[in-house]
Simulated assay, not measured.
Amino acid sequence: MAKGRPEDIRAVPVRHPGRWVAVAAIAVLAAMFLHAMLTNGALHWDVVGQVFTYSTVISGMEQTLLLTVLAMVLGIAGGILLAVMRLSHNPVLSGVSWMYIWVFRGTPVLVQLFFWNFLGAIFPKVGLGIPFGPTFVSWNYNDLMPLFTVCVLGLGLNEAAYFSEIVRAGILSVDEGQAEAASSLGLTHGQTLRRIILPQAMRVIIPPAGNETISMLKTTSLVSAIAFTELTRAATDIGNRTLYVIPSLIAASLWYLLFTSVLSIGQFYVERYYARGTNRVLPATPWQKVRQNLSTLRLRKPVGDAS
């Protein structure tokens, strides 16, 4: 007697009860936190809304963004230069780069800001002339270095030390055969670095560079210690005058969260752009991830028995 047709496999989705318990616990905690934030009268959300749109806070936010952009431009340019010097076969250039990185990474950025701000007490005059000889022209340090310039210089020079290590790691991640192939084609060291090495190194450089940019946006709050009015200083001044310190700080924090979110989105798309040459399938966009997560929540229907 011939054997009958085997039964179809009945596919049953794997159960994950622990995940649903965790989701339920997180949902309860999130609801409790949201309820506490919305019902706590001490937070004064009406004051938060008013401070959020104050002209001084808006002006402080503009100064924060300008400081972030200029400091990062200085940091990126200086970081690339320091990384190239660090990788140089010239021991003097390599040693100078190592010393710079050692000093600026080894001291707090707040101390460096104080140093640049009060450097005029040590060198009240800055001039140009013959070394160890006469000075042809000189300027007062405080006139030459206004407070905004001090902030940009302090933040940018400190960032250059960190960014140089990011660039160095990116350059070292590129296979040495790329440089050898470029040299065999007659490209100079500068052309090889600019056209071959750095474009490939960007895949490694972009993620930490985006993180450094977001960090710089928040690090600008330190310049309030040397009396420069940016977002944090503007918010704390309002809080000290009105005695609504916490609502003022919440308003400033909302501005920081807004722009860090924008920078995070920009970082994602830049990373996605430079991943084209290495990944066959590009990373999913945030909207695609939402659609994928929603599709996984749908219950799969089990395959029924054949009639």
Rank of each mutant, 00 (worst) to 15 (best):
L222D: 00
L222V: 12
L222I: 15
V223A: 02
V223T: 04
S224P: 02
A225M: 15
A225Q: 13
A225W: 07
I226T: 09
A227G: 01
A227D: 06
F228H: 04
E230N: 06
E230D: 06
E230T: 07
E230M: 09
L231S: 01
R233H: 12
R233K: 15
A234M: 04
A235E: 02
A235T: 03
A235L: 05
T236F: 03
D237C: 01
I238G: 00
I238Y: 10
G239D: 04
G239W: 00
N240L: 15
R241F: 13
T242K: 07
T242I: 13
T242Q: 08
T242W: 08
L243F: 15
L243K: 09
Y244F: 15
V245F: 11
I246K: 01
P247N: 10
L249R: 07
I250N: 02
I250D: 02
I250S: 03
A251F: 12
A252D: 00
A252H: 02
L254W: 11
L254P: 08
L254V: 13
L254M: 14
W255H: 12
W255A: 07
W255S: 04
Y256S: 12
L258Q: 01
L258V: 12
F259C: 09
F259I: 14
F259N: 05
F259K: 08
F259M: 08
F259R: 08
T260C: 13
T260F: 06
S261Y: 14
V262Y: 03
I265S: 10
I265F: 13
I265W: 15
